[in-house]
Structures are given as C-alpha cells and as structure tokens.
Simulated assay, not measured.
Amino acid sequence: MSILSPQSINEQAARDRGARVVVGLDEVGRGPWAGPVVACAARLIGPPPEGLDDSKKLTARRREALAPQLEACCEIGYGEASVAEIDTLNIRAATHLAMARAVAALRTPPDHLLIDGNDRPGWVDCPHTLIIGGDGLSPSIAAASVLAKIRRDRGMAALAQQHPGYGWERNAGYGTRQHQDGLARHGVTQHHRRSFAPIRKMLCQ
C-alpha cells in the first residue's frame, strides 16, 4: 500500500480516534527573499490522484497537471501573509498566520489537523498531529503542499511581469544568482522582505 493512499496511516490514525474531518496543512515560501508566504489546508473528499507526492519531488509541469485533479477531490482553503506582515511579525509568526487563514477559509472546520513539520502554531486548539516530512507521508499534507506551491509560484510569476529582471518566474523569490544580479541592477522593490538579512544589508549600504 502506498504511503500516500487514502488509507495512509496518519489519516487512518486520526479517524480511529473519532475524527470525521481530517485536514492536511502545509506552507510554502518561508525562505525566499521576496513575496508572501502561502499556506494551504486540504481535506480529501475523494481518492487522491495517482502520483501525488511531496511538491518538492515533483516538476512544475507535474504539479500543474495535478492541480485540477486535486481541486476535484479536495476541499481547499488558502491563506497568505504579506511581505509587510512578514517584516512586522517575523517569518515564523507570519507563517502561522497564513496557516490560520487557510484553515479559516475551509467550508468545514477540521476536527483533526495533520500539520507538516514539528512547529505547532499557537492558535491550534483542535486535535492535531505534527508530522516531520509530512508531505511525503500523508496524502492530505501532500495535497496541501502541491496546491500551496502552485498558488505561490503563479503569484510570483505574475509579480515578475510587473518587476522583470529578478527572475521570479523561475526562482519564486529565492536568493538565486539571477535574483542577486537583479537586485544589484534594479534595487529593492516593495515585494522584498526587508527583515531578511540579504535585503537589510543592501538597504544599509
């Protein structure tokens, strides 16, 4: 049995404890120098599509191919925290805020959350399981991982149209050489995270 089958051990363990609405929760975008952090909460209401896996193990083309299939078999909530919120709160707190917004956006409140990683947000007040590497161990978290990645990548590609030269359509705001070269040529935009050391250093020069 695949670890990402509908009968995955993590989902089943939650159901064995009486949960009816099991939701996977993941985020993307903690590390980039630019753009928001995006979270997704995903509740499987049908079998997950073939080939679902941790978003980092899938090509962009494969993720895009999975998107309509996931939208058909999941109840989905998205949440974001803006660059301003990241700079005001810090990236950890902003990530937790984005995750709270994703859960709040669901039509059906969860009675068990499967959360990727080992960092429980302070707002979580329902039964939950923290799963390190959860996007490779839980189909609910994997669905959230893929959908969050697609949403953020699309958003960064749209921002790249407004701010060409940083390569955001390819690097999604991470500190690649192309992004560094763009900063050297064009400077810091309103979409850059000023609280992050590389950007802060540029502004202080």
Rank of each mutant, 00 (worst) to 15 (best):
S2C: 11
L4H: 09
Q7V: 10
Q7W: 11
S8L: 03
I9S: 14
N10I: 15
R15K: 15
D16F: 09
R17T: 02
R17Q: 15
G18L: 05
G18D: 03
G18I: 01
A19E: 04
V22G: 01
L25G: 13
D26M: 05
D26F: 10
E27C: 11
G29I: 06
G31P: 05
W33Q: 09
G35Q: 07
V38I: 14
A39M: 11
C40A: 10
I45F: 00
G46L: 02
P47E: 14
P47V: 05
G51H: 05
L52W: 08
L52T: 08
D54I: 05
D54G: 11
D54H: 13
K56L: 07
L58N: 00
L58T: 06
L58H: 03
T59G: 15
T59M: 04
R61H: 12
R61D: 10
L66E: 02
A67Y: 14
P68M: 11
P68G: 10
E71W: 12
Y78D: 11
Y78S: 14
A81Y: 08
S82F: 04
A84W: 09
I86D: 01
D87V: 14
L89V: 10
L89M: 14
N90T: 08
N90W: 05
N90I: 07
I91C: 11
I91P: 14
A93S: 13
A93W: 06
A94K: 13
A94T: 07
A94M: 03
R101F: 02
L106A: 10
R107Q: 08
P109C: 08
H112V: 03
I115Q: 12
G117C: 06
D119F: 07
D119Y: 12
R120V: 01
G122I: 06
W123E: 00
W123P: 08
D125I: 08
C126Y: 06
P127S: 01
T129E: 14
T129K: 09
L130S: 10
I131S: 10
I132C: 08
G133N: 05
G134F: 03
G136Y: 03
S138L: 04
S140F: 02
I141W: 03
I141E: 00
A142P: 12
A143G: 05
S145F: 10
V146I: 13
K149D: 02
R151S: 01
R152G: 00
R152N: 01
R154V: 00
R154G: 04
G155D: 00
G155A: 00
A157R: 07
A157H: 00
A158S: 12
A160K: 04
Q161Y: 01
Q162C: 08
G165T: 12
G167M: 06
G167V: 13
W168F: 12
N171H: 12
G175M: 09
G175W: 04
G175Q: 09
Q178T: 13
H179Q: 08
H179P: 09
H179V: 03
G182W: 02
G182F: 00
L183C: 03
A184I: 05
A184R: 15
V188G: 00
T189N: 04
T189S: 15
R193F: 01
R194I: 04
P198N: 10
R200A: 15
K201S: 12
M202N: 02
M202I: 15
